[in-house]
Design a protein around this nucleic acid. Structure first.
Lengths: 144, 144
DNA sequence: GCCAGTTAAGTTGTGCACAATTTAGTTGTG
DNA sequence: CACAACTAAATTGTGCACAACTTAACTGGC
């Protein structure tokens, strides 16, 4: 007789729960900025360096155009982003920040600290968690 | 001037990426059983103990009826589960396993090992990760 | 220069998540 | 008993994820 696996032993369920709990904490904070968590991630990438192509954004975040195209349309509707067809390569759409999008990075800068406070872990633990998760993600992708 | 937060420093992004990578590894494995990852989680709970009410399932998984109702309808359509109005309390819907649903726990029992193999972490690391994620999830919920 | 093969982005369809609301059934209190 | 407060489940609407497909533009080999 084979044992049915138990939910409370599953690392993957812990991962899934923690991830949803994190976005639940983000939700009210990001609501002040009018953003969802995936939209915030896109903005993080653009604040680092812009303009970026859709493909390029997808590379950073691990998302495809099926997810990003409608998301970017919503960011454009919010007036945070502009989509411009590239002149050199008419297939590419360059995502530019608008002044409003650029100026949102100020209010957003306090967010990581608020999350760190909510996490209830020491900086060392957070750092180690990030490292372990990085190893895990790489290995999981490797296995595909 | 305030610094824009950097994506690659964010524990939450690491969490989000790892969680999606894990379900991506699950996907082809669960496809053999005809299940999605959330459906598999529901089956895990039922394999431990059934019948369970929708609310009860939601308590174990942290999901509400808005997510579970349609998911359970799909599990019923697959013939894995039966939904029966409780006689004592007509509001309650008891979720029972069908013989087909029960017998799926056999083939499913090999899955955790396959995931552990794909994770590329030692058992100690996995155990520690699960503990840390548990602490993190509890603290995040606490902060709401 | 032509065209097969490739690439970028968008579209369509399915299935979560989750907020907000609805419906139906139960319970406690006067 | 009456009825307000509560509860369980379902429904509605929005926004991801992701597979599969489409469209349009580019590239390389001939």
């Amino acid at each position: 007789m084979t044992e049915a696996p138990r939910l409370d032993r599953q690392v993957c369920f812990a991962l899934y729960s923690a991830s949803r709990a994190a976005t639940a904490v983000y939700r009210p904070i990001l609501e002040e900025l009018g953003l969802t968590y995936p939209q915030y991630l896109v903005m993080l990438v653009l604040w680092e360096n812009e303009p970026r192509g859709v493909k390029e954004l997808g590379g950073e975040l691990g998302l495809d155009s099926g997810t990003l195209s409608p998301l970017l349309k919503r960011l454009e509707a919010l007036g945070l982003v502009e989509r411009r067809r590239s002149g050199e390569d008419e297939r590419r759409v360059a995502i530019h920040l608008t002044p409003a999008g650029r100026s949102l990075s100020g209010p957003a800068s306090a967010i990581p600290q608020r999350l760190a406070d909510a996490a209830g872990l020491s900086l060392d633990e957070l750092e180690q968690l990030r490292t372990t998760l990085g190893k895990l993600t790489a290995a999981l992708h490797e296995s595909l």
